[in-house]
Amino acid sequence: MGAGSIGTYFGGWLAAAADVTLIGRAPNVDAITRDGLTVTDLAGRTRTVPPETLTLATEPSAVVGADYVLLTTKTHGLAAATQQIAPYLQHDSVVISLQNGLRNASAIDEALAGAFPSRASRPLVLSGMVPFNVVRTAETHWTQTTSGRPVFKDHPRVDPFVRVAQGGGLRVEVDPDMRAVLFGKLLLNLNNAVNALTGLPLAVELRDRDCRAVLAACQDEALALARRIGISPARMTPLPAAAMPALLRSPTPVFSNLARASLKVAPTARSSMADDLDAGRPTEIDELQGVVVQLGADHGSAAPVCARIVELVREAEASGPDRRRWSGAQLRAAVGL
């Protein structure tokens, strides 16, 4: 449900081992109906899925009969999408959240309450995490552009889905502590706003030490929050989460050498937030730097750099196509570093 870049990419791989329905916007659905769907992973493996092997739909009623529903909408559309599919879910369906942010599974569960007042009869909601970016490289071709493996909440009822995913060619993992996983991903996702504000390709932005200094400051604030609320962020790179800001602040040759083994970035990679700003869509900033600011205020953990980044993204959203593209040095000065 919400078959944009991530949803379509997952669907393309899952289709080799499962009956897959893609529910998305009409232009995407029409193009795939005509030409099929092609997906490519970071290693260059490519699969083309004929349209007749997929169920393609624009209406939420297409979730009827689904064993698993992957919600891949943007975070700000999550509650509405959940309410749309709720009347068509089975009580034994499993709903998996694949959004950025910390609070999505609970938001889905709350949105299901209207259709399933009894928690005992409500579909099971589980968290998932997608560490990589996907870009649309042609009208019906979606390509993974950064490294990492998806992680799903370790639960007996997710096991059949994991087997199918691996059978379809998706390399996935499970973890019992998704709070730690999601917080670890949040630390990486704090770069989405930095990348979007610069408008640079991800590989270029990460070679800019000023950009990395802004990201490091955001991560420092998020790590301070994690300590306040008792979360030990999962390690998403070979380095512990607490060591990432120091790596980001290191000279570019040092950063590049240390990051090369763990962070693979295609030349076309950029953050989905950059795509949202270019398209005039709302961003997920409330669940990235915004959640650090909000939870920080609740728990007495200051986050001035994250707060300033939220302001700058809001200004960019309001400016539309004429938004400012910041250099790393300008952005660093704008957040007071």
Rank of each mutant, 00 (worst) to 15 (best):
P160S: 00
T143W: 00
I229M: 09
L188T: 06
E221S: 11
G184C: 05
R228C: 05
A213N: 12
S147M: 03
T145G: 05
D210Q: 12
Q166F: 02
R212C: 04
V181D: 03
T143C: 03
L215D: 03
V194P: 01
A224S: 14
R212F: 04
P160R: 03
A222T: 12
V194W: 02
G199E: 08
G169F: 08
L225E: 12
L225W: 12
H141I: 02
R235D: 11
E221R: 11
F161W: 13
L206D: 00
G167S: 14
G169P: 05
H155K: 06
N191E: 05
A203M: 04
G230Y: 06
R171A: 15
R209I: 10
V172A: 11
T146Q: 08
G230A: 09
R228D: 11
A196T: 11
L186S: 08
L197Q: 07
I229K: 04
C211N: 15
F152A: 12
A193T: 12
P150V: 13
G148L: 10
V181M: 08
P156Q: 05
E221W: 10
A226P: 02
R228T: 15
S232V: 15
D175N: 15
A222C: 11
L197K: 09
G184W: 02
A180W: 01
P150K: 10
L200Q: 15
R163A: 15
G148K: 02
P150T: 12
V162F: 00
P160Y: 00
R163C: 01
F183G: 02
Q144F: 11
D177P: 09
A196G: 09
P160W: 01
S232P: 00
P176I: 06
R171P: 00
H155W: 12
K185P: 08
E205I: 02
L200V: 00
D220V: 05
D175V: 04
V151T: 15
D208G: 03
R235N: 13
F183H: 09
V214T: 07
R209P: 01
C211M: 03
L202R: 04
A165Q: 09
A222D: 09
P160H: 02
D220N: 13
C218T: 10
